[in-house]
């Protein structure tokens, strides 16, 4: 049987590697990601925590080897920093609510649309998501500035007499932040809606519900997990917002993240680190609460 010979010839040439036990294989596969996250994330974050517990000094950025809670005490005592924290949270809440509201409407429209319209709506959102923040914010600056496109159009149409102030204030901040988070809230809701049968709305209409009613009764309850995930992401990123406040806000709209950078550049490492630690804790606490609530509702969802 010559067929068997051919195989027989081949077999010994197979490298006689000892087969790896499954456990070893799994560990090897996980090693790159785990090592990377340990080295670039866990350890640096731990180091930041350590820095936040160092003595403050006016002479150098960091006095090594010292232990102190001065950084945190300063956070509590400084009325400026307290104001920054309150403003950041308020700003994050407003941006989150707007992003979830607009995002849900947009996602619903994309889901309802068919063919070319759906493609255009989705492509627009993916485009926006993948465009660097700097470009989006720069573009917003150009469009919303006092002599920008929007104000030109408003004045020309006679709707307003003088240009509106849309940047360098809270409005600018929120506008800028929407560019950051809106794509993510849209896609969170959209990905949940894709698992919903498109004929449900037709069925609801058929049973006598108006389109708006059908959306409210049938689609909205289904979209809640996606809205929650999108909301949690929007809040986390808005609470940590840096670029939009720095570019589209003014000196009086300081967020925690901007303040972190200010303190770092003025070499106040313990204060900057303490601010970072508190900010991260707040963000992760809100995230955990959001995900916990989501799980209790029975919607297990990966972010």
């Amino acid at each position: 049987m010559s067929d068997a010979d051919a195989v027989g010839e081949g077999r010994p040439s197979r490298p006689a590697l000892p087969s790896l036990p499954a456990v070893t294989r799994t560990r090897l596969l996980l090693a790159p990601l785990v090592l990377f996250d340990l080295l670039a994330f866990v350890v640096p974050m731990g180091y930041l925590l350590r820095v936040s517990l160092s003595e403050r000094s006016t002479r150098q950025a960091l006095v090594r080897g010292t232990w102190s809670v001065d950084g945190y005490r300063f956070l509590l005592e400084s009325s400026l920093l307290r104001r920054v924290f309150v403003f950041t949270v308020l700003f994050a809440v407003v941006a989150t609510l707007l992003a979830v509201g607009l995002g849900t409407a947009y996602a619903y429209a994309a889901w309802q649309a068919s063919g070319a319209v759906r493609t255009v709506l989705l492509a627009g959102i993916v485009m926006s998501m993948f465009t660097t923040l700097v470009v989006k914010l720069f573009a917003a600056l150009v469009v919303f500035s006092p002599n920008g496109v929007v104000n030109d159009a408003l004045v020309a149409s006679g709707l307003v007499g003088t240009p509106l102030r849309l940047i360098n204030n809270e409005i600018g901040l929120v506008i800028g932040q929407l560019y950051v988070v809106l794509p993510y809230t849209v896609l969170s809701v959209y990905s949940v809606l894709t698992s919903l049968d498109e004929h449900l709305v037709e069925a609801a209409n058929d049973l006598g519900a108006t389109p708006a009613r059908a959306a409210r009764e049938v689609v909205l309850p289904h979209a809640v997990p996606g809205m929650a995930v999108g909301g949690v992401i929007a809040f986390a990123w808005s609470a940590g917002a840096f670029a939009a406040p720095a570019l589209l806000g003014s000196k009086s709209e300081l967020t925690v993240a901007v303040e972190v950078q200010n303190r770092l550049t003025s070499f106040e490492y313990p204060v900057a680190a303490a601010l970072s630690v508190v900010l991260t804790t707040v963000v992760l606490a809100v995230l955990a609460a959001g995900l916990y609530g989501l799980r209790r509702r029975g919607g297990g969802h990966d972010v």
Partner: peptide, 9 residues
């Protein structure tokens, strides 16, 4: 032919 390829035929 896959099995044979793996066997180096």
């Amino acid at each position: 032919a896959f099995g044979l390829k793996m066997a180096g035929v």
